[in-house]
């Protein structure tokens, strides 16, 4: 059997709309529908019931009144955010940093997984993989200390500049470099961990495909491009769509531990800003409003990218 043949067969089986047809499918899938029940009960209890809390964004939270008895204030907190000039600065920074992280950070784990898979020697491969995800376990408090050292005036990068007769640069306080440092260090921390899903997908590729290609005389590079990569496309596209859901989370822990006053204009993001404001004056309504705003943006992006993927690759790789 081959996978391609299976999906062609599958497509022929696609149902045609119609009440009789739907009823038939109900009967056919009754067991599967029952399987959905426990999961959806959890969703309703632990995800949907608490969602009423989102109305706090439109209310003035009174601690003794609870959510229900707090007075409505309409769009007050949204107005507050949208009339705050700094909000646009942090929104812009959030989008830029997040976009760069996606643009440069998204392909790295894929590339790493494919290259790692090409390595002969299973034992060595395992070692590399295990070590590559170690930085994921080190918190940003620790990592930021290390990076501040690396990019400091006495650090190795400036020593290199000195050796090349260039002037030293205080990278961590330089608006031109800071975002690149953020993106680079974030990739460093997460590429190994991020590659796990791709390695799993590669493991799922039928070895017969490779064997057949070898017989046809395909080289390694060709097999990489024509077998491994295409087989990864479904995972890649779904990871891409799902990553849109967190596009407004540009990395609080990382930025909070690395930024300083000099790079505030390029590094301050929504989360760090809301955190600092909250330190002075805890305000559930405001942070709920900002959270709701982030959710709406994420929803639009997920739907948008899903549509784009659909337009390019057809129904196969989309969310639904």
């Amino acid at each position: 059997m081959s996978d391609i043949g299976a999906s062609a067969e599958y497509r022929e089986l696609r149902p045609r709309a119609g009440p009789g047809e739907r009823a038939r499918r109900f009967v056919k899938y009754r067991a599967l529908l029952l399987m959905l029940v426990p999961g959806f009960i959890f969703l309703i209890i632990f995800n949907y019931i608490p969602m009423y809390g989102a109305i706090l964004a439109f209310k003035e939270f009174k601690i003794m009144g609870g959510i229900a008895n707090s007075p409505w204030v309409g769009m007050k907190y949204f107005d507050k955010a949208f009339h705050d000039p700094h909000f646009y600065v942090v929104l812009k920074n959030t989008l830029i940093i997040s976009f760069y992280k996606l643009l440069f950070g998204f392909p790295v784990p894929i590339l790493f997984a494919i290259l790692l898979n090409e390595l002969p020697g299973r034992r060595f491969k395992r070692w590399v993989q295990t070590i590559s995800y170690l930085p994921h376990f080190i918190s940003w408090i620790v990592l930021s200390g290390i990076f501040i050292t690396i990019f400091s005036l006495e650090g190795p990068i400036n020593l290199l500049l000195k050796a090349m007769d260039r002037l030293p640069i205080i990278f961590m306080a330089d608006e031109h470099y800071f975002r690149s440092i953020l993106v680079g260090t974030s990739i460093y921390q997460s590429f190994g961990w991020g590659s796990i899903i791709y390695l799993a997908a590669i493991a799922g590729i039928d070895p017969q495909l490779h064997e057949a290609a070898i017989i046809d005389g395909a080289g390694r590079f060709k097999r990489m491009i024509y077998i491994t990569l295409p087989m990864l496309v479904p995972v890649i596209s779904i990871m891409l769509i799902l990553s849109m859901g967190s596009i407004l989370d540009a990395g609080f822990d990382q930025i909070f531990n690395m930024y300083n006053a000099q790079v505030m204009d390029v590094a301050d993001i929504i989360d760090t800003y809301v955190y600092r404001i909250g330190l002075i004056n805890a305000n559930y309504s405001y942070s709920t409003a900002v959270g709701l705003f982030k959710s709406v943006v994420a929803l639009i992006l997920v739907l948008g990218v899903n549509r784009i993927v659909k337009a390019i690759g057809g129904n196969e790789h989309t969310l639904w």
């Binding site: 499918r25 632990f46 809390g53 799902l242 959710s295």
Partner: peptide
């Protein structure tokens, strides 16, 4: 071709993007 698959998936996806915040979760 599971009946209402799109609706179920949407129902699921929505929880990824929206949440109620700390207070209702604590109360729950």
């Amino acid at each position: 071709d599971l009946p209402f698959n799109r609706a179920f998936t949407g129902f699921l996806l929505f929880t990824m993007l929206f949440s109620g915040g700390l207070i209702p979760n604590y109360l729950l």
